[in-house]
């Protein structure tokens, strides 16, 4: 099954990004395709390559990057939400791309299910 995921909260502040990641990983393990993860609202902060958590904590941003690399997951950051919050190409982590809200609508059209994680 083709799955879309929406992440509406930033990393560390809220569990949403962790839940979304663990859901995505489990879906891939079960043979589903995670077609796109769309980061919206404060969720765009998941794409900041300036993120430096303490060494004994999970690295949420790098975890997404690795998922994208290992499983060709399309990580899309909403441009309007990103610009509002200072996320730009110059501080965008690897594996993410910045694009428009149309990418979210497209995920709704193309995917069999869309699951939203937020506050």
């Amino acid at each position: 099954m083709k799955l879309g995921i929406v992440v509406n909260e930033g990393p560390y502040q809220h569990q949403a990004s962790d839940s979304a990641y663990l859901f995505a990983k489990a879906a891939i393990e079960k043979g589903h395709e995670v077609w796109r993860v769309f980061f919206y609202h404060d969720g765009v902060n998941n794409a900041s390559k300036l993120t430096e958590p303490p060494q004994d904590d999970r690295h949420i941003v790098n975890r997404w990057t690795k998922l994208a690399e290992d499983h060709k997951v399309d990580l899309v950051v909403c441009v309007a939400a990103a610009l509002r919050r200072g996320i730009k190409e110059e501080n965008l982590a690897q594996g993410f791309r910045i694009s428009g809200l149309g990418q979210l609508v497209e995920a709704g059209i193309k995917c069999d299910r869309v699951v939203t994680f937020g506050d």
């Binding site: 309007a80 809200l101 609508v105 497209e106 709704g108």
Partner: peptide, 15 residues
Amino acid sequence: LESLEVVLITAAFDQ
């Protein structure tokens, strides 16, 4: 506000 922005974009997709 950001929800409304998605709604307006969705309109362009004939859904």
